[in-house]
């Protein structure tokens, strides 16, 4: 008898989920949700959180060498935002019943991923510009779209993040502009950074719609609102113009405006490289993970000390 009633409640609850989906109402933590929905969100949101945190590393590589006090402040503030955004996203993911410690353990075991883009090195100061302009520029296209995602805490985190990230892309573009107006060496650094970051930035949107394994569910559940190719096109269209204004060359000989589609056509993306980096063979995969593991292990005694102090004093 009891079992049957449970199933009944379950059915009613699930129909509420479906109705909310249909009405475009956000799903909240205590709502019943299909297992697959919860799993998909945990996977996507924790990957997003890890990306923010791992993303601190390539830019962090230049903090001590930032060439002016102003540049240093801006870069510090920006990396600090990435850290804050990682925190917003971890908290939002924790509402799904997984702890931050579990998520970090999954990152360390390789079960959870982070954005591939951070497996590329930041080799000269212009890379800091390229990361802000291209990488954050690509991320924000995706994040603006995610503000309308169906899970309430994720959507709210995205609204906050988008509001804060608006300066990131500008600071990156400002660095590129300064370098392009600078000495010959500075212009060379800027173009070099452009050449190395352009294609990986396009890869950030993921495989073409025809090859994307998760697209189906993500759309059904309104986690994702626009396809990889739509978002990529949006990014290319706005970025090409910005590159032209400051005299940077987009490293794609096949790039052409398509009047009919009202979008740029671009050359083929090197998906072999994309999958190679995902498989762990990018230039910095080991370095990034080793850094994260090392820091986490080195901080253990601090976390234990704070816990021990609380236990002794029962402060809360």
């Amino acid at each position: 008898m009891e079992l049957k009633e449970d199933i009944n409640i379950q059915n009613v609850a699930m129909s509420i989920f479906d109705r909310k989906m249909e009405m475009d109402e956000p799903i909240e933590p205590k709502d019943h949700m299909p297992d697959g929905y919860r799993k998909h969100l945990i996977r996507q949101m924790s990957q997003h959180a890890h990306s923010e945190v791992i993303g601190m590393q390539p830019e962090g590589n230049w903090i001590t060498r930032a060439p002016s006090l102003r540049a240093k402040q801006i870069l510090l503030a920006k990396i600090q935002d990435e850290c804050g955004h990682g925190l917003y996203l971890y908290s939002a993911t924790e509402t799904l019943g997984i702890s931050r410690a579990e998520m970090i353990a999954q990152l360390h075991s390789g079960k959870a991923k982070y954005s591939n883009i951070f497996n590329y090195p930041a080799l000269n100061w212009a890379d800091v510009g390229a990361i802000g302009w291209l990488v954050d520029g690509a991320a924000i296209v995706n994040q603006v779209s995610l503000q309308r995602t169906s899970y309430g805490p994720y959507s709210r985190a995205m609204v906050r993040i988008c509001k804060e990230e608006s300066f990131h892309q500008r600071q990156g573009y400002e660095i590129m502009t300064k370098m392009m107006r600078g000495t010959k060496e500075q212009r060379e650094m800027a173009q070099d950074a452009m050449n190395r970051w352009w294609w990986p930035s396009l890869m950030m949107f993921g495989p073409h719609d025809s090859d994307s394994p998760h697209t189906g569910d993500a759309f059904k559940w309104k986690i994702k609102r626009q396809s990889n190719d739509e978002l990529r096109a949006k990014f290319i269209d706005k970025t090409v113009q910005q590159a032209e204004v400051i005299g940077l060359t987009v490293p794609d000989k096949e790039l052409r405006w398509n009047e009919e589609k009202k979008h740029y056509d671009h050359g083929p993306i090197n998906w072999a490289e994309f999958y190679k980096v995902i498989a762990g063979f990018g230039p910095c995969n080991n370095q990034r993970m080793e850094h994260h593991k090392k820091i986490h292990a080195e901080g253990a005694w601090v976390r234990e000390a704070a816990e021990a102090h609380r236990a002794k004093h029962q402060r809360q």
Binding site: G84, R100, A306, H313
Partner: peptide
Amino acid sequence: GMIHATDKEMALQNARD
């Protein structure tokens, strides 16, 4: 949102930052 902390002073400071 949410933060982690072991005491109320740490909680307020972490929330602020």
